[in-house]
Each structure stands twice: as C-alpha cells, then as structure tokens.
C-alpha cells in the first residue's frame, strides 16, 4: 500500500466542463502529503466517456493520472461514483485518498470510505506530521473548537479538505499523461435516476468568479440595511454575498450564499 490518491471533481455547467478550483486545492494538499510521506502522488477524475477529462492533467505534476470513464458516469450518482472509485482504489491500493470537500463529495465519499470499513476525516482545514504519521485538523461545534484526528489500523485513510484551506497557486506545474481506467459497471447498479441540474430563476451572479466579495451575516439585522452593504459592494466593484440564514430569509437570494 503506497500513494496519495487525489480524487478531482469535474463539473459541467452551461455546457462547459472543468475541474473545480477546490479540486486543485485538494491536489495541492496531496502534493504536500505525498512529498512529506515520500509516496507517489496519484490523481483521478471520473465522468462520461466523451467528457475530455484527460486534458485536465496537461499542466499538472502528478506521478500517475487516471481517467475513470464510463457512459454511466456521465451524470453524477452516488452509486455510480462509489462503485467506480471502489474499483480504482482496490486496484491502486493507496495509503491516502483525498477529496475536495464539495457537496458532491459529501454525498458519496462517506459511503465509499465505509465500503473499505473506514471513516472519512471530513472537511479538514490543515495537517501536520507527528513523526511519520499525519495529524488532520478539523473544526467542531461551528468552529468553536479545533480537533486533531489520526488514522489508525490498516486500510486507506480517507480525507476531504475544506475549500480555501490549501492553495491551488502552490501547485507545482508539470505535464502528465492520463491513463484510462477501465471499470466494470452495469446500469442496474445505479439505483437513482438523476435529472438535469437547473437553477431556480435567472442566474445573475457567479460568486466563484468574483475577485472580491462583500458578505453580510446576521449582524445586518434587518432587510432594510442590505442596501448599505450593497452600496459598499458596488463602490468596491465587489459582489454582494450573505451567510446561510440571511439567504434563507431571501434578502439576497440563495445564489448569493457565501
């Protein structure tokens, strides 16, 4: 058992496909871990056969890259992804499996880890080494506490990393050719029928693309105070955003959830 396997997430929105920024942050975490543990860095991305996934690795330095392709993976399902990545992990036998902590990863990674009798150490904000073993840090009780977790026993250690905890800019560049990983998957193994993703109402903002965000929380108190902050955002050429409870009230709509 050796290797740090990073599972990347490709997303298709409005007909465009690309690996998400958080995927590259997870790869940056993987690079650090692999270097320190002196293990090869492996990366994989799954999707439908025509998604052009292999181009994702052209400017990245990884030891081995895998494209897990299957027509049944064209639309995300937990059953499809768990089955596919279970086969890849059994084949590669890595020591660590890293994910970006996205909504999608929250949906399938705990189940994938459980299939290996493992627990996912989820939403990690950093790590350090104690001797040869990494210690992973995550937050508890709405960030009131930090907690240190270690992996014990055999089997791969599954970890997902919080967005922004590692920096995609630190990623060493290079060039990697991806191998196609052939998997055995029948459509009957996928029990859920996913529909096309959609937005509610017209999209007016993409926060992930905004260079500066001005975000409000409960401290804004009243809907009438929103224009104050909206003015500030406009003056700074920033996008207005808000925390979950504020968006739940619909003051700025959900698409402005920070």
């Amino acid at each position: 058992m050796s290797g740090v396997l990073v599972i990347l997430q490709q997303q298709t929105r409005n007909g465009r496909s690309a690996c998400t920024r958080m995927s590259w942050e997870a790869l940056a975490a993987g690079q650090e871990l692999a270097a320190r543990a002196n293990q090869p860095l492996l990366a994989a991305v799954a999707g439908g056969a025509a998604a052009g996934l292999s181009s994702e690795f052209q400017q990245k330095r990884v030891d081995r890259a895998y494209v897990v392709e299957h027509p049944a993976l064209e639309h995300y399902t937990a059953d499809g992804y768990v089955t596919a990545y279970e086969q890849l992990i059994r084949e590669l036998d890595p020591s660590f499996v890293l994910f970006p902590h996205t909504y999608r990863v929250r949906d399938f990674a705990p189940r994938l880890a459980a299939r290996f009798q493992q627990s996912l150490i989820a939403d990690v904000i950093g790590h350090r080494f104690e001797g040869r073993a990494p210690v992973f840090v995550r937050q508890l009780l709405q960030g009131k506490l930090n907690a240190d977790y270690t992996h014990v026993g055999g089997g791969p250690c599954f970890v997902s990393v919080q967005g922004g905890a590692y920096h995609a800019e630190t990623l060493a560049s290079g060039s990697s050719e991806a191998e196609i990983f052939t998997l055995w998957l029948e459509s009957s193994q996928i029990r859920s029928k996913p529909g096309e993703p959609f937005r509610m109402g017209e999209q007016t903002v993409d926060l992930t693309a905004a260079p500066v965000i001005v975000s409000v929380g409960r401290g804004i108190q009243e809907k009438e105070n929103i224009p104050l902050v909206a003015d500030l955002a406009r003056a700074m050429e920033a996008e207005l955003a808000a925390s979950r409870p504020i968006c739940d009230s619909g003051w700025p709509p959900m698409e402005r959830g920070a």
Binding site: S119, L145, N146, Y149, H151
Partner: peptide
C-alpha cells in the same frame, strides 16, 4: 473498531 482517532480538542 474505529479507524479514526480523535486525539485532542483545543480552541482555534
């Protein structure tokens, strides 16, 4: 047996 051990908690 759990494969993840919570070592300690501390204020951030």
């Amino acid at each position: 047996a759990s494969t993840v051990r919570l070592q300690r908690v501390y204020p951030p």
